[in-house]
Design a protein around this nucleic acid. Structure first.
Length: 317
RNA sequence: GCAGGGGUGGGAGAGUGGUUAAAUCCAGCAGACUGUAAAUCUGCCGCCGUACGGCUACGUAGGUUCGAAUCCUACCCCCUGCA
């Protein structure tokens, strides 16, 4: 707290799915010698390309990208893994004299990084989870919740007793000795310029529908079929990407094609709403641009970044 | 034309005399979120009101009843079988 240290500059592009983050982040990377750090949890997995709207080969060639295509479908990767990775990568990018550009829609990941969350260093305990899930199913979630109330009343206070998954995680953490230290950094760790892409619901929904149609035309069903044939489990983390299970259900003859597509649309819309929750229009930290005008946002964003870069780096006391 | 079935809230669809502004699902809206996060979970969802509450609603009109989406009558519309 006594020695002044400059905060590293980090450019961030956020917004709901289909708002144009990929295109904008690439054009900014080209304009400012930037490297894109992906912050979209579905882009981690190799082979899950079409349905996740992964940047194309050309996109990837147009700017250096990080945290894309580095996991197998079954690999778990959580918040703490993500934060560690990004922090390391951002530092490396900066030593190359390049500008790190965080781009993505995973709200928890983005804010975890920007707000400097102190995430409990307790890795998932598959055995414990399975056991507690079993209890929850047999005897009800309240029984598991009661366990948490005993172990960590404070955590029980802030977690909905019906949210079994989070109750179990809290027990996992508590049993491992709990979390230590403050929940988040007092001072944000980065000097971040956050650009948000905004589109009204109606337009966004229309864009989502159109993009899903494009994905299907581009061979999404084949992509899913391939994964199924490869033996990727339906429970694999990568399979939680919207549309994959739906289409796999269609391939297995459990539902009609049109039903699978409708379900996918629905889930994607709901994702977009969820993302609006993390990235709120009222959030003063975010500089919102109108995503309806892709060229306009590129120009406006470039101006913002220029002026931000010309400012002296913020000083942490 | 005859016989039978049916018309319920944005959609689908329960409900067959009171505890029903009306199950449930979908759609929509709002929110939580610290190692599964494109996950998981929560609230709202006829109109007015912050709320107690008030008002209007189950094809239309009338009737029975203390009380009707629910029973009766007439009419309108839809579907199916037979002609």
């Amino acid at each position: 707290m006594t020695s002044p240290a400059s905060k590293p500059k980090l450019l961030v592009v956020v917004g709901p799915t289909a708002s144009g983050k990929t295109a904008l982040s690439i054009s900014l990377a080209q304009a400012f010698n930037g490297e894109v750090i992906n912050s979209d949890s579905r882009l981690f997995y190799r082979g899950f390309d079409i349905g996740t709207a992964k940047p194309s080969e050309e996109d990837l060639a147009a700017a250096r990208h990080h945290l894309i295509d580095f996991l197998e479908p079954e690999d778990p990767f959580g918040l703490a893994d993500y934060l560690d990775s990004v922090r390391g990568i951002a530092t490396k990018v900066m030593t190359r004299q390049a500008l790190p550009i965080l781009a993505g829609g995973a709200g928890q990941y983005v804010w975890g990084l920007l707000e400097g969350w102190n995430v409990p260093r307790v890795p998932p305990n598959a055995e414990l989870r399975a056991e507690l899930e079993g209890i929850a199913q047999e005897d009800g979630g309240e029984v598991v919740f009661a366990r948490l109330e005993k172990l960590d009343p404070e955590a029980a206070e802030r977690i909905d007793f019906r949210n079994v998954r989070r109750v179990i995680r809290a027990i996992e953490v508590a049993q491992a000795g709990g979390n230590t230290g403050p929940r988040r950094a007092v001072e944000p760790p980065y000097d971040a310029l956050i650009i948000g892409l905004k589109l009204d619901r109606e337009q966004l929904y229309a864009r989502i529908d159109a993009r899903i149609d494009e994905m299907l035309m581009a061979g999404w069903v084949d992509e899913v079929r391939h994964m199924v044939q490869r033996g990727v489990s339906m429970n694999a983390p990568a399979m939680t990407g919207i549309g994959y299970r739906e289409l796999a259900g269609y391939l297995a003859g459990e539902r009609t094609y049109s039903d699978a597509v409708h379900a996918t649309r629905r889930a994607t819309r709901s994702l977009a709403r969820h993302q609006d929750n993390w990235f709120s229009v009222d959030d003063k930290r975010i500089n919102w641009l109108d995503a309806a005008d892709p060229e306009g946002i590129a120009i406006a964003a470039t101006e913002q970044v220029e002026s931000w870069l010309s400012q002296p780096t913020a000083i942490v006391k």
